[in-house]
Design a protein around this nucleic acid. Structure first.
Length: 578
RNA sequence: GGUUCCAUAGCUCAGCUGGAUAGAGCAACGCCCUUCUAAGGCGUGGGUCGAAGGUUCGAAUCCUUCUGGGACCA
């Protein structure tokens, strides 16, 4: 059941019935202010000019024409011609009843699409730092949401596992192994390893030449070199997987489709672009000139797919990836989560790929950008020592802080239970801090706000869930077999009920726009309304009759299910006690 | 130089295809734990939505110019 869709269809029909021209906008929205109903239809004012009638009269005609009966308590014309829609609490109660009885919470699956979601994509030469958080968890949340809505999601971890810096790393690794070090030990700290290799590259006689030699051997598929590379990659991927595991991110080894995976397709990709006439030779390089993106003087943008020396670029790999995803995997949609600096690149990439027919007219290619991480001074983020904050360290800190907080509180929880809770609360807080912001612009990294457990944070949402579980424990009610008629008498009950019914609206928006913060906002509002309901509408206290008690238990139950479902889509875990 | 994005409360951010009195959290101040978990609830203060024009019955939202900042391309 989708309230918005239901009402919109009815109002569209009403517009036709009163003789509005086809294509008349039907602006129907949730109401932001109490006293203006639950939804409002604002189409009458704009029609005033077209129909040459008073907007309030038009609004009244729409009200008369709209075929809403049991769904609605009343429709009122207000102000210059707003139509305020008040939903019928009894009808709402029935919808909630149905949603609560359904494992999918009353949300129907959409028509299935195959969606490739490209996210995380760490650079395997370096350790994951906080800057990698966004792509990883936003992409994961969107992927899960798409799956929930019934789509076939193919995750692609386009890891940076190829390129010239690997020459340097492999040369260094080779020496370490020759000195009888174990790869895992040598690579235990990727940052240190990278730095050490870089120092040698810059200072050590002959090392740079050996590094370049390794690049050539790597690209030509030299067996010994590939073995060394594989060694490096295995350890490095294991590092990433450790972080994914801690972050409760669903990426698996089988989702890895790194840059190296396209190495053998690059020549063929360029050849196809050439034969299609999209790419031509210019100063020895293979270039697509894009007139569509020309500057003021009419100079087309240049998109290089092969350098004059024969080397390939990101552009080539991305074209090959499209060929694979849209051709072999049959993607209807492709979502790519990277930082905003690559926006121009992806715009050009799409243009070229469409011209080449790698993407057909029915397929979408959506770059989903996010901003850079800045320090509190508004400049690119660096720690005091000039480095980046390692993701693993951030998570450690979050869990530690959560543990301190838990230990301050009175509770009957065992030490082991506290540990588990600290883990879920700490990780949840870090993820939520990032997920709840959408802006494609840069964002300010701040330890305290990222590790905060108060207000609009994951712990608040987890706490709301735990409160419901506590009620059920105290009530000794079988959570599964609770049967009662929901009745919505109190204002807090009605507000909660309508919010519960709007879950589907939130997740549809997340899937359409790849914006998990919409879901965060929704869950926060839901939890907030539940807290209000919890304070105002006692459930187990004395003097509450059986029917009211059970009705409220049902509301609490559906709230818990919705919270859990939403948090699960965000990759945030819930717990029964905290 | 070209392209492009951004500017909302002291701070961090929401604001859906233009809608009624611009919302949250944090921070500040006041109240509520013998009462279903106070990681909570209720309340107060805090904004010329960067500036100026324009379109519209209606603009934080759309258009133009300007100011400031970022990014990308060269």
């Amino acid at each position: 059941m989708n309230l918005h869709t239901l009402l919109l269809d009815k109002f569209k029909a009403a517009l036709i019935a009163i003789g509005a021209p086809e294509g008349t906008p039907a602006p129907l929205s949730r109401t932001t202010r109490a006293g203006f109903g639950h939804y409002q239809f604002n189409g009458a004012m704009a029609l005033s000019k077209v129909l040459k009638q008073n907007p309030r009269e038009i609004a009244q005609k729409i009200v008369d024409a709209v075929e809403l009966d049991t769904e609605v308590e009343k429709l009122e014309v207000a102000g210059p011609g707003f139509i305020n829609i008040y939903l019928n609490p009894e009808w709402l109660a029935q919808q909630l009843q149905a949603a609560n009885a359904d494992v999918r919470l009353g949300i129907e699956a959409e028509q299935q699409q195959t969606v490739v979601v490209d996210y995380s994509a760490p650079n395997l030469a370096k350790e994951m730092h906080v800057g990698h958080l966004r792509s990883t968890i936003i992409g994961d949340a969107v992927a899960k949401t798409l799956e929930f809505l019934g789509h076939k999601v193919i995750r692609q971890n386009h890891m940076g596992d190829w390129g010239t810096q690997f020459g340097m790393l492999l040369a260094h690794l080779n020496d370490k192994l020759a000195a009888n070090e174990v790869a895992e030990t040598a690579l235990s700290d990727l940052e240190d390893f990278y730095r050490a290799a870089k120092v040698r590259f810059d200072n050590e006689e002959g090392f740079a030449d050996r590094a370049r030699d390794y690049v050539v051997r790597l690209q030509s598929g030299d067996a010994q070199c590939m073995q060394l590379w594989q060694n490096f990659i295995d350890v490095s991927i294991a590092h990433s997987e450790e972080v994914y595991d801690r972050l409760n991110v669903a990426l698996k080894r089988s989702d890895v489709m790194g840059e190296s995976a396209y190495n053998n397709d690059l020549a063929a990709t360029v050849a196809e672009l050439q034969s299609a006439g999209i790419v031509v030779e210019s100063q020895g390089a293979q270039v697509a000139f894009l007139q569509e993106m020309a500057d003021k003087e009419g100079n087309p943008a240049a998109y290089i797919v092969q350098k004059s020396g024969g080397g390939y670029l990101y552009a080539t790999t991305d074209q090959a990836a499209i060929r694979y995803r849209n051709g072999v995997l049959g993607a209807d949609r492709t979502l790519i989560f990277t930082d905003v600096r690559q926006a121009l690149h992806f715009k050009q990439t799409e243009l070229v790929a469409r011209k080449a027919g790698f993407i057909n007219a029915q397929q979408s290619y959506e770059h989903c950008p996010f901003g850079m991480m800045l320090g509190s001074d508004g400049k690119p983020f660096k720690t005091r020592t000039g480095g980046t904050v390692k993701l693993a360290e951030l998570l450690d800190e979050a869990i530690e802080r959560a543990e301190v907080l838990i230990n301050q509180r009175e509770s009957d929880l065992s030490a082991q239970e506290r540990k588990i809770i600290a883990d879920k609360v700490g990780i949840g807080a870090v993820k939520y801090a990032d997920l709840s912001k959408n802006r494609t612009t840069d964002y300010i990294f701040n330890w305290d706000s990222m590790l905060s457990f108060e207000g609009n944070t994951a712990p608040y949402l987890q706490y709301a869930y735990a409160r419901v579980q506590s009620i059920f424990r105290k009530a000794h009610v079988d959570d599964v077999n609770l049967q009662a008629d929901i009745q919505l008498d109190e204002m807090q009950e009605q507000l909660l009920a309508i919010k519960l019914m709007q879950y589907v609206e939130a997740i549809k928006q997340v899937s359409n726009e790849a914006t998990p913060h919409v879901l965060c906002t929704y869950i926060y509002e839901l939890a907030s309304l539940f807290m209000g309901f919890y304070e105002a509408c006692p459930i187990l206290k004395e003097g509450i009759d059986e029917q009211t008690k059970n009705s409220r238990l049902m509301l609490a139950q559906l709230t818990a299910k919705t919270l859990q479902s939403g948090l699960d889509l965000l990759g945030i875990e819930t717990m029964d006690k905290m």
